[in-house]
Design a protein around this nucleic acid. Structure first.
Length: 448
DNA sequence: TCTGGGGTCCTAGGACCC
DNA sequence: TCTGGGGTCCTAGGACCC
């Protein structure tokens, strides 16, 4: 079984061997946030529903009925408002506590069906699943089984795509969603004929890994369908589509898995907490309160993944003076500081973060957004073993875990740091939020 | 008047080291 | 006057994702 002596490390490209690697599934919740809201409002079944982003700024989820009315995804709420009122669309502010809980139930269901270590949670409403080799028919049956089980156990409807690679599975999922009656929300791409049929029907912009910039470029070159892209050479893709990224894309489209399944317990390398303000803020005190609050949020996330941070960055975004400016290129200023030692203790992060505000804030300007980023993350046990960490630090860590538990089970603002302030005139609008049915006793769903 | 909030990966270039 | 070849780490910026 030893390789021939002439074997050279780079001479043989293993991917040309086309080994049998099984299949990948992507399970994607249909209009996830809307589905969550409707779960507790059966009267809204088959009625148009939208869910808004933080601050009620954009539309981030639309039911099929809302899509049919022509309400744009990620469009500003105020622009869609006439359409929403005209058709009696129900709008909700986002309720992340509720969505997070339902997401967990969906993912648990998938883990119970397919095995704990087979599921890679990709986002709040999507997961990849590692599957063994199957025929096209077996895969279709299995996809249907997944869909029905998740729906029965959680009340959330999902679409399932199955293919040899993640990118093809995403493409299959796209077709499943596009054509719900016909596909029953499942689609499988395995054989070359099927790859041809499926990819010919998909525009490049709808591929996973192709965004606006690349799509424009491809269309300018006369490449419009996913099938045409698939048939370009790897060398061409390397040159035109961002090096190894493009190379991977082409391979994946040919059914050669090149994006690996991720370890389930992988941790984030950077943690951010940022928000728009409810209304523009011009005094430094309020900005500091906001930064302190975001820092404690970020610190909670940090501890949840058992890490500590070495670098603290903050940014603030000034309100544009002229209205012609493209809003996404706002007047953003940022600054960072490196701590003497990594920490996960909230007040050790708040202090430097708030100090940075003094260096960024300009008197006379008003601001619409601020944020905190924690990076240079290291596992927390790396610091716990440090002999030079004073006793007080250990106590600080204990206090933090108590605080996290309280905040998890009670209203988030019951316990907070004094630096976060109490007036909170900068906080975001959330006028249309539904109750946290599944995680707050006092807001639990009532059966009549 | 009103436009989200997270993230990831990759590349290039500079500083610095041996 | 000559001025290598490798490596690491960091930062900025671009592209993408949900």
């Amino acid at each position: 079984m030893t390789p021939p002596t002439t074997f050279k490390k780079k001479a043989i490209a293993p991917e040309t061997v086309s080994r049998k690697t099984g299949l990948k599934a992507i399970v994607d919740c249909n209009s996830f946030y809307c589905s969550c809201e409707r779960l507790f409002r059966p009267d809204l079944q088959h009625k148009p529903v939208v869910v808004l982003s933080n601050n009620d700024g954009c539309i981030v989820s639309r039911s099929d009925e809302a899509k049919l009315l022509g309400i744009a995804m990620a469009g500003p709420y105020f622009m869609a408002k006439p359409l929403i009122e005209q058709h009696g669309v129900t709008a909700f502010s986002s309720n992340y506590t509720l969505y997070g809980d339902l997401s967990w139930r969906v993912m648990e269901t998938l883990r119970m069906i397919t095995g704990k270590d087979k599921v890679e949670v990709y986002s709040v409403d999507e997961a990849f699943i590692d599957l063994p080799e199957m025929t096209e028919q077996e895969a279709a049956d299995y996809a249907l089984y997944i869909r029905k089980t998740v729906e029965t156990w959680t009340g959330i409807s999902v679409s399932v795509g199955i293919a040899p690679s993640k990118t093809l599975a995403k493409a299959a999922n796209y077709i499943a969603k596009k054509n719900k009656q016909h596909t029953q929300c499942v689609y499988v791409i395995i054989s070359e004929e099927e790859q041809y049929r499926a990819l010919s029907s998909i525009r490049v912009i709808h591929l996973w890994g192709v965004g606006r910039a690349y799509a424009d470029k491809l269309i300018n070159m006369g490449i419009t369908s996913a099938w045409e892209l698939r048939n370009m050479s790897p060398e061409w893709a390397y040159k035109q589509l961002g090096g190894v990224v493009g190379l991977r894309l082409i391979k994946e489209l040919r059914g050669i898995p090149s994006i690996a399944m991720r370890e389930p317990l992988e941790t984030k390398r950077m943690i951010a907490s940022t928000r728009m303000f409810g209304s523009p803020v011009a005094d430094i005190g309020s900005i500091k309160e906001a930064i302190a609050t975001y820092t404690s949020l970020a610190a909670q996330k940090l501890r949840r993944q058992s890490c500590a941070a070495r670098t603290v960055s903050i940014f603030i975004v000034a309100k544009e003076q002229d209205h012609s400016a493209d809003f996404s290129y706002g007047n953003i200023t940022s600054i960072h500081t490196t701590l003497p030692a990594a920490t996960a203790v909230t007040n050790e992060l708040i202090k430097p973060a708030v100090a940075l505000v003094d260096r960024l804030f300009e008197e006379g300007k008003s601001y619409k957004k601020a944020g905190v980023m924690l990076s240079g993350l290291v596992p927390d046990n790396a610091i716990q073993g440090n002999l030079f960490v004073p006793e007080a630090r250990q106590q600080g860590r204990f206090l933090m875990s108590v605080l996290d538990n309280i905040n998890f089970s009670m209203r988030n603002d019951v316990v907070k740091f004094a630096a976060s302030g109490t007036a909170r005139n900068w906080k975001m609008r959330q006028e249309l939020r539904s109750p946290r049915f599944t995680t707050r006793w006092e807001e639990m769903f009532e059966v009549k």
